[in-house]
Design a protein around this nucleic acid. Structure first.
Length: 444
RNA sequence: GUGGAUGUAGCUCAGCUUGGUUAGAGCGUCUGACUGUGGAUCAGAAGGUCGCCGGUUCGAAUCCGGUCAUCCACCCCA
């Protein structure tokens, strides 16, 4: 067909077996998100242009040259400029604030699935309308306030592990997780490192490509991301001499996330700290990450994300942290097909188990992740390091949990866990190692 | 696009007619009673630019003007 109308450049029609695979992946992703205790959200496909400029950043490639923008219609007295969303985090944060969720639930966990739009030159794995599945944890208290303690770093690991779970269940081969810290906006953190990088890279400026020479002033970190061999050589030398230097909190975040994620990642997913990893959006702080897989050509990232502890405040909200990820569904499908993987079954939405951390330790969280990885819908409180048992049971009952698995100081010392039936109230102590089997048996 | 109504705490609303101490209630949230056991009850706490801008006034949530937003009906439409 050469003379008629065709789908716009960079878009595609989805039908037949492709539609079925797409739908199966959507079901898998939302099924996993639900077993991890995340609730769904759909935000508008377009938003005020300013929302993206403010969140993603004025000097980013996305905002500078890749947005589909509908200009204002001044003749109709309309001075609003709208833009098709290039990503979904800004919309979710906007909705979180607009509906005052920081006041009604404190910590919110959402997942979304939907089309995103970027006006780039299409290539394998890069469309102008593409689809993402993502998840966000919003409302992490960064420092203690009154009788509320600061949130632990669990949430930052949680989103990585959930993304890994989806990709792994999707049957992708050669899954690799790379992570890094990009520092935060606190004085002396990212700023200090940025200046040192700038100075060091400027010294070897002539060897860098034209783009990178410009990036030194505009956005130094993107130099580390350049794929050109000369630039890589220069940045490798620079990184060897200018070690990353971030604030205590950013380091602590990484010190928790790194071992926790490595221990709990699904089998077959490799993980490595990669100081070259940066992100193309300005709102990221602290730990960032990216997943790559086989079968994708030059665009080999299937998903990525990280924390964005400054964005909620930047958008006019309170000082609360957040973290999240997004997966490119078309890329996941490409990789899935290359791996000749069959469309996997989504985990069934069974009864809810609540894991109660009554002691400040990573062990209860690890237990929760293992239950989820076994397909059991499990809720875990990411907002506090530990709570009293009564407080936890109140939450469990409000969430409608069928079972509560309590790990407190006694249990931790003994290597045990208490499994309690929320309806009848009966409970028993078991070996922590038997918890999964016990929960499975009880749920039938 | 036309007409009507409404903006007060996270939610539902009272207060406005007749301007006057520190703007209230119920629900929700958090904390405690109950230092490791939930749903009930009781007590306490947090939470507000009274949509925004201007005017009148000694004084405005309250009166006046403008503006923005939302809702309803009509028109049109998937």
């Amino acid at each position: 067909m050469t003379n008629g109308i065709q789908a716009p450049r960079g878009t595609k029609d989805l039908f037949g077996p492709e539609f079925d695979r797409f739908e199966a992946l959507e079901r898998l992703a939302s099924g996993v998100a639900r077993t991890w205790g995340y609730a769904g959200i759909r935000t508008p496909v377009f938003e005020d242009t300013g929302l993206f400029v403010r969140s993603i950043g004025e000097a980013t490639d996305i905002v500078e040259k890749e947005m589909f923008t509908v200009p204002p219609r001044e003749d109709k007295g309309d001075d609003k400029s709208y833009t098709l969303r290039p990503e979904n985090t800004a919309g979710v944060v906007r909705a979180y604030l607009e509906h005052n969720l920081h006041k009604t639930q404190g910590l919110a966990r959402f997942f979304y699935i939907g089309p995103q739009f970027r006006r780039e030159r299409p290539q394998a794995g890069r469309l102008r309308q593409f689809h993402q599945m993502g998840a966000e944890v919003l409302g992490l208290l960064r420092e203690a306030k009154g009788d509320q303690p600061a949130a632990p770093y669990t949430a930052y690991a949680d989103v990585i592990l959930m993304a890994a779970e989806i990709l792994s269940r999707a049957g992708l081969k050669g899954l690799k997780l790379r992570y890094n810290s990009v520092g935060c906006a606190k004085p002396g953190c990212r700023d200090g490192y940025r200046e040192k990088l700038k100075a060091a890279l400027s010294a070897g400026k002539e060897k860098l490509c034209g783009d990178c020479q410009r990036r030194i002033d505009r956005n130094v970190f993107r130099v580390l991301d350049c794929k050109k061999p000369n630039c890589r050589e220069v940045s490798a030398a620079v990184l060897a001499n200018v070690p990353q230097e971030f604030c205590a909190e950013c380091r602590a975040q990484m010190d928790f996330v790194s071992p926790t994620v490595k221990e709990l990642l699904p089998a077959g997913v490799e993980a490595a700290h990669d100081q070259f990893l940066v992100r193309g959006l300005d709102y990221y702080t602290g730990t960032v990450f990216e997943f790559t897989a086989e079968g994708l050509g030059s665009q080999d990232a299937v998903g990525g994300g990280g924390s964005y502890d400054g964005l909620i405040e930047e958008m006019g909200g309170p000082k609360l942290g957040a973290t999240g990820f997004a997966l490119g569904l078309e890329r996941v499908l490409m990789s899935q097909e290359a791996a000749k993987a069959a469309s996997p079954e989504a985990p069934a939405a069974g009864a809810l188990v609540y894991v109660a951390a009554a002691v400040d330790s990573p062990e209860p969280y690890k237990l929760a992740v293992r239950l989820r990885q076994a397909g059991i819908r499990t809720d875990f409180d990411l907002s506090a390091p530990a709570r009293g048992v009564g407080n936890h049971l109140k939450r469990a009952s409000k969430l409608g949990a069928r079972l509560a698995v309590i790990v407190g100081e006694d249990e931790l010392k003994a290597g045990e866990a208490t499994v309690k039936d929320m309806a009848g109230g009966e409970q028993r102590r078991i070996k922590a190692a038997d918890a999964l089997a016990e929960v499975k048996k009880t749920l039938g």
